[in-house]
Amino acid sequence: MAIYYIDRKTGETREEIVAGDQFLQWLYRTGSGSFFLETLIKRKFFSALYGKYQDTGQSRKKIKGFVQSLAIDLSEAKIEDIGKYSTFNEFFTRELKPSRRPLCNQPEALISPADGRVFAWENIDIDLMVQVKGLAYTLADLLQDQALALAYSGGTCLVIRLCPADYHRFHFPDSGVPGPPQQIKGSYYSVNPLALHKIIRLYCRNKRELTVFRSDHFGDMLLLEVGATCVGSIIQTYSANQHVAKGSEKGYFKFGGSTVIVLFKKDRVKLDEDILDHTVSGFETKILMGERLGVKLK
């Protein structure tokens, strides 16, 4: 199953380079793989153990092959020389040169909180949230809070899927005051489209962290980071209840593909039409942290 997305800069349809594609095909498309997935791979101890290995000196041997197979642009990184990383996770969570992720300077613009591939929906039905075509989940199930879900009925939802090749730090999409992160326990399925087409209510079943963010231009919004297979940790680096600037770092994912979900209340933001149009057509749009995704609704 090939995965295609729209490159926002060029408008071209591109095929995604999938890390571990054959392994994922086996896990999510065969009976033996499914058994292995349910008995081992989705469980916390497997991802925790694998994550710990990525923090060892032995893991640094993987960096060169990882860079080559996924065509990672090292010129973006603050540290370009892979020999200077002591572990694989140190490379995976690498910081980028600020000049390579300029922030949209429009005062009332919403910026992307992460690099990735985005789906976007306006006027959401909280009882029929879209995972992929034919599969849905409820917002209350995702948030584990019925009252909070009701507050976002008719609002806007962004789902940003990070691939292993992407920059894995996530940021605040506006200035404002973030509350403390709330951990929601769960499993560790992949967030690759192969898994999204196979596992019902996947986002509601995986480990995730929820932050209520009182933004300066869009009111209260919800920021969720969803873990995935081999994501050893979701690390929050911000200080709760202190004002943050637009684009400042919120945290990072250790090894593995991951997802950031952003939710807005009704009539708070107008998303850019190209992203909405691509979603209707069934394509994710490739975006970079700091890019404009929409503007404050007047």
Rank of each mutant, 00 (worst) to 15 (best):
Q58S: 14
Q144D: 11
S187W: 10
L297R: 15
A48S: 14
Y85Q: 07
S248F: 11
K246D: 01
D267F: 10
V67P: 02
K42P: 01
N89H: 11
G282W: 02
L110C: 03
P164C: 09
I3D: 11
D81S: 12
A165N: 00
N241Y: 11
K296Q: 15
D73H: 00
E76S: 05
D277Y: 08
P193V: 00
I124C: 12
L143M: 05
E80M: 08
Y50S: 15
F283T: 01
L297K: 15
K97F: 05
G256D: 04
V295T: 15
L139F: 06
S281Q: 15
K286G: 00
L194C: 00
A149N: 09
E209L: 09
Y203R: 07
E15S: 03
Q22P: 00
K44Q: 13
L74W: 00
I82K: 01
A120N: 05
T285H: 03
P113C: 04
G20E: 09
L276V: 09
L37A: 14
Q25Y: 09
Q183P: 01
G186I: 05
F45H: 12
I287R: 04
K298G: 11
S75V: 04
G227L: 06
G232E: 09
Y238P: 05
G155Q: 13
F36R: 02
N89M: 10
H243D: 01
K84G: 10
L194P: 00
R208M: 10
K9T: 01
I41A: 13
Q68Y: 01
D216S: 13
W26E: 02
